[in-house]
């Protein structure tokens, strides 16, 4: 099995999908000869030609709108938005159109398409190359929202997303693009959407997280182990539709919960997890749910290491939950 980085696994998934299915197309800004600003689409134009992997004009609205048109008419578009921060011109196409098409046409028209985009901080990108906008999209019925955290999952989840009958927003943690490597199976396999992944065992406390925060949670759990706390880490990996049963089961088993994301706190994804537990598992809880998140501010540049939750902040939350 080849050892791949996360961005190489994305590239491998795209190639695998394009080899299997001629209707799969990849397009966006700079994805052609340059291979994308993070090289996620490197080599695709060479292997599949300009008809199947191509650059578009600089218009996210156009990219997503055109993807919808292709999807309703028999193609399987995989559109790239260069940074998640630049997706907002396409918000209308995603939220008003792609996500609602099946519902508003009674299933006559559907948009099986994937929008891939790198999200998150950690690269000194300041306000507009660092954001985690998942909450805007998780508030959108009809859309699926997927966030891998390992090369293996990135490939399997992306292939599953491309084959999914509904529009999928695939958020790639750019901070992990090259920071982790692992063995990734060759050829085709999928990881089911809507399933979470147990990352680390533990019976005292569980940290729910996703994307670039998964390694942060693991590091904090290791530090907590030295203090005698056995901390479980769960990677949600599909935010919408969420594996609610899985989340509740973990919460009930352990009774102490930390939710971790780098997006701002207010109305963030952590609020949903917290509410779900309050509604369905409150009698199992030994401590209030604690959220560790980005602050409710825009994303800073020089001080991004203070903004981004780190193991130190997660450990602090674990200690608080354990001390309750």
């Amino acid at each position: 099995m080849p050892t791949l980085t996360l961005v190489q696994a994305v590239n491998d998934a795209l190639k695998t999908a394009m080899r299997r299915d001629k209707s799969v197309l990849v397009f966006g800004e700079d994805v052609g000869p340059k291979g994308g600003v993070f090289l996620a689409t490197e080599g695709l134009t060479t292997e599949f030609g300009k008809e199947r992997c191509f650059d578009t004009p600089l218009s996210e609205d156009g990219i997503v709108g055109a993807a919808i048109g292709m999807a309703i008419n028999g193609l399987r578009p995989v559109a790239e938005i260069q940074f998640q921060d630049f997706i907002f011109p396409a918000f209308d196409q995603i939220v008003s159109e792609a996500a609602k098409l099946r519902y508003r046409s009674g299933g006559q028209y559907t948009a099986p398409m994937v929008i891939r985009t790198p999200y998150g901080g950690g690269i000194r990108g300041g306000l507009y190359h660092s954001q985690s906008g998942e909450a805007y999209f998780c508030h959108t019925p009809g859309l699926k929202v997927v966030v891998p955290s390992t090369p293996h999952d990135a490939k399997g989840l992306l292939l599953a997303s491309i084959e999914d009958p509904d529009p999928v927003l695939f958020l790639e943690p750019k901070a992990l693009y090259r920071s982790i490597k692992e063995e990734v199976p060759e050829g085709h396999y999928t990881v089911d959407l809507g399933t979470l992944r147990g990352v680390r065992e533990g019976k005292d406390c569980v940290v729910f997280c996703y994307g670039a925060m998964v390694p942060v949670a693991v590091k904090a759990a290791e530090q907590a182990a030295e203090l005698g706390h056995e901390v479980r880490v769960v990677d949600l990996r599909t935010l919408l539709p969420l594996d609610e049963e899985g989340v509740l089961e973990h919460a009930k088993q352990v009774g102490r919960v930390v939710v971790l994301h780098e997006a701002p706190r207010f109305c963030g994804f952590g609020a949903e997890i917290s509410a779900m537990i309050a509604e369905n598992a409150i009698e199992y809880m030994d401590a209030p749910v604690v959220r560790v998140t980005g602050f409710d501010t825009p994303f800073p540049n020089t001080l991004e290491h203070h903004y981004l939750p780190d193991a130190r902040r997660v450990l602090d939350a674990i200690e608080r939950v354990m001390a309750y």
Partner: peptide, 11 residues
């Protein structure tokens, strides 16, 4: 150019 995209890809 717009990053790597020549103007013919723009208009």
């Amino acid at each position: 150019y717009a990053i790597s995209c020549p103007i013919e890809e723009q208009t």
